[in-house]
């Protein structure tokens, strides 16, 4: 038997060596996270209490103004409060629509039928059609299409437009409560934007549906459950964790594209009001995170984890 000569240098236990290897894999990201996220979040809060002036030669100078930026945001800024409310309302209206609609579409696409590959390719097309410049053109074209006449400007198009107000009145005559009515009308109005915003969520749900063990469906069939019962007793509970994932994704995605983020961006890029912009970001992010936390908490209470 030969004894292996001991290597020079530090000797580590297996676990310690594993830890070093793990750290070496995640190290670049860890540095980046500290530099870009932790530092930036700290700076953001700091900036929101400052009044900042930028000079191309000397760099940034600042003086502390306390809560003045927050007070301005809520009392004297022309459009912050309206933008904030409407952005949050948009997020809350879109959220259930997108999540349930994408689940519904995933249920349809998960079945085998002729031309499924083509349909999938079409349904995921919106993921790649959402650039700013391109999205603008698509929205414009969608307006023309929904107006019914393609080639002309809006004056000529009005003749072909469906009169939405007629339907609103129709529902109003049914004595539906006003806020429910508003929700329905809002949802119908934004059906195009909802459909164009649900590609990733559908992919996630399809993956989730594929991962449900088929034995559960067999049991349900043997026990005599109808398709409808199977949906509610097997499919929905099994996809519940993914509904939470999708809710988070949708909310963050909507927030990123919302008007309030655009306002914060404009405030420092066009009006050079850096402190106020930071205050906007802090407020809107806190509110979004609070909503996110609340929704995830409520859903989590009902969630069922198979594993």
């Amino acid at each position: 038997m030969t004894v292996r000569p001991k290597k020079k240098g530090i000797s580590l236990s297996y676990e310690q060596r594993n830890a070093v290897r793990g750290y070496s894999f995640i190290l670049p990201w860890l540095i980046g996270f500290a530099m870009f996220y932790i530092v930036s979040l700290g700076q953001l809060v700091q900036f929101s209490f400052w009044e900042i002036t930028m000079d191309p030669n000397t760099g940034m100078t600042h003086n502390s103004v306390g809560f003045a930026n927050y007070i301005t945001a809520f009392t004297s800024h022309a459009s912050f409060k309206q933008t904030l409310t409407s952005s949050i309302m948009d997020m809350l209206i879109d959220l259930p629509m997108i999540v349930f609609f994408s689940l519904f579409v995933a249920l349809i696409l998960n079945r085998k039928f002729k031309g499924r590959a083509l349909v999938r390719a079409i349904f995921f097309l919106p993921i790649i059609l959402s650039a700013d410049a391109v999205g603008d053109a698509i929205n414009r074209a969608a307006e023309l299409v929904s107006a019914g006449v393609s080639s002309s400007e809006l004056e000529t198009a009005q003749a072909g437009t469906v009169s939405i107000s007629y339907y609103i009145q129709l529902f109003g005559d049914l004595a539906l409560p006003d806020n429910i009515l508003e929700y329905i009308v809002g949802a119908v109005n934004r059906i195009a934007s909802i459909i164009r915003g649900f590609g990733v969520q559908t992919i996630l749900f399809i993956a989730a549906l594929q991962s449900i063990p088929s034995s559960l469906y067999e049991v349900a069939r043997i026990e005599g459950a109808t398709g409808y019962e199977t949906l509610w007793k097997v499919t929905i509970p099994m996809t519940m964790p993914h509904i939470i994932t999708n809710t988070i994704y949708t909310l963050v995605d909507r927030f990123t594209n919302s008007e309030i983020v655009a306002l914060a961006s404009r405030t420092y890029r066009q009006y050079y009001d850096y402190g106020l912009s930071s205050a906007f970001s802090v407020i809107s992010t806190l509110i979004t995170c609070a909503i996110l936390g609340l929704i995830v908490y409520l859903l989590n209470k009902r969630a069922f984890y198979y594993n």
């Binding site: 953001l44 983020v261 914060a264 961006s265």
Partner: peptide
């Protein structure tokens, strides 16, 4: 650290747009 990954997914980058702007300016 894995919670940090989740933070990256949940906190949108647009929140820290201005600090990033400054960092590279």
């Amino acid at each position: 650290f894995f919670a940090f990954v989740v933070v990256m997914i949940v906190v949108p980058m647009s929140t820290i747009q201005f600090p990033l702007y400054v960092a590279f300016r």
